[in-house]
Nucleic acid binder design. Structure first.
Lengths: 243, 243
DNA sequence: CAGGCGAACTTGTATTATACTTGTCTACAT
DNA sequence: ATGTAGACAAGTATAATACAAGTTCGCCTG
């Protein structure tokens, strides 16, 4: 399949920035250096960097250089990323505390959605800099998770543990009052508002591979959704941004 | 039985797209390449691709190439946007009750975001079949809203009333406990959980034209968001350049 | 030591050229 | 009606090059 060079380069640089290879606030290599490294002309390097600038990931000052933008503050839903990845990006140390780890027989909604009988159910508490951040319950088909140990899921995010290429996800966002159990875990008063997210992740062939439920305390979490509407030629008709 | 070549080819390509062999938003092989692969002339390949374009499955830009029409973008928009419209479209009658209608001097966040001093502030209660559904507060620059009357905003949604071409929006979704005032309007107990959305809508030139705050009772509302693939789509970036 | 100058870097912005793409047309064969 | 072959126009991506403008830093001068 054909590829567009400057998009490849943009992805490569984006990864480096997100991985922290280019620390926040530090300068990136100059366009000339990148040009040599990627064996592409300066124009192409610039286009790549400019797309990253549009995403707010980097910025530049004439005569000075390109640098990692101050801080991407909130969670954008434009892409499929883990909460953990977002936090690591902003320099927060993420930890996980496993509350529950069991292979069980699926029932009800989990069974219906994942289309399997045996599932691995993992409930864990996510911490950011030691502070409780979210209660996450994950279900995945037992066959996919059978090689996982309690230690594994504590060490790394789920997406990295499954050797599966993921395509996308459907996420449902709602609000609720926190349950007594979750309130205790999160250290918030019983009945205080929480954001509840259910995410169904599918692999490249469209099969559901992960069902997860996230409970965030409302006072420190919000989602940001970008609604671009710049594609009149692609949209067949009636693409409106209306209530 | 005689087979029609370009229809055969169209079906073959359609399968590949639907199977994900050609990932959404990425480039297809060029007409010349496909011509070689299928051993058919370029004209025939084009006819096949054009039928697929009519179906909205793929699209092309001159000098650039054919690409899978990026569904996720549209879905994201559609799903998010229809939260209120969904009920109206499914036969439920939507009504609006104006709580407040005033031209005021902007302050704090509204002033900072809309970058103007005088704004029109409209607070209204949205009803579906007579049931309170959402409390919506809208601010827009006074110059844009000066021709609007209280009756206007009661009759039609805001987006239709402004004679402005809209580009997109950024939406922030959070949770909170409902305030006493909103609780009374929505007919829910004080302190019960609500979804709070703030949406900043911009016109085609990127200027902010509408700031709106939506409060939904949690028990009857949730958002559905499609998270597209991690790989950035090729179509939007191309279109961005045209602009 | 203070201050100004300038060399050596950086990004920003053109122009030109080439190879490749789709869009469109004509001519012709089955 | 369907398919092939070819030619040309128009748009895009990339390279190579040049120059303007901003920043940094060391060196030179007084």
């Amino acid at each position: 399949m054909r590829t567009i060079r400057y998009q490849e380069i943009a992805n490569a640089i984006r990864e480096r920035v997100q991985q922290g290879s280019y620390a926040a606030g530090r300068l990136l290599p100059s366009e000339a250096e990148l040009s040599g490294e990627f064996d592409a002309s300066r124009v192409t390097i610039r286009r790549a960097l400019e797309t990253l600038r549009d995403d707010g990931l980097v910025d530049a000052r004439q005569g000075f250089g390109w640098f990692v933008a101050a801080e991407p503050l909130r969670q954008t839903l434009g892409q499929l990323v883990t909460i953990e990845g977002q936090m690591a990006e902003s320099g927060v140390e993420a930890q996980r505390k496993i509350i529950e780890f069991a292979f069980i027989s699926a029932s009800g909604r989990v069974k219906a959605v994942l289309k399997t009988d045996h599932v691995l159910q993992v409930k864990r508490l996510n911490l950011a800099d030691g502070e409780p951040f979210a209660v996450v319950t994950v279900w995945c088909p037992a066959e996919l998770g059978q090689h996982l140990s309690r230690r594994d899921v504590e060490r790394a995010p789920f997406y990295e543990l499954l050797g599966v290429a993921l395509r996308g996800a459907t996420q449902t966002i709602g609000a609720d009052s926190v349950s007594a159990a979750d309130a205790a875990l999160l250290g918030v008063p019983v009945g205080s508002p929480v954001l509840c997210c259910e995410r169904l992740t599918t692999d490249v062939e469209g099969r559901p591979v992960l069902l997860s439920q996230h409970v965030f305390p409302a006072h420190r979490t919000e989602f940001v959704v970008e609604l671009p509407n710049a594609a009149p030629s692609v949209a067949p008709s009636g693409l409106r941004l209306v209530e």
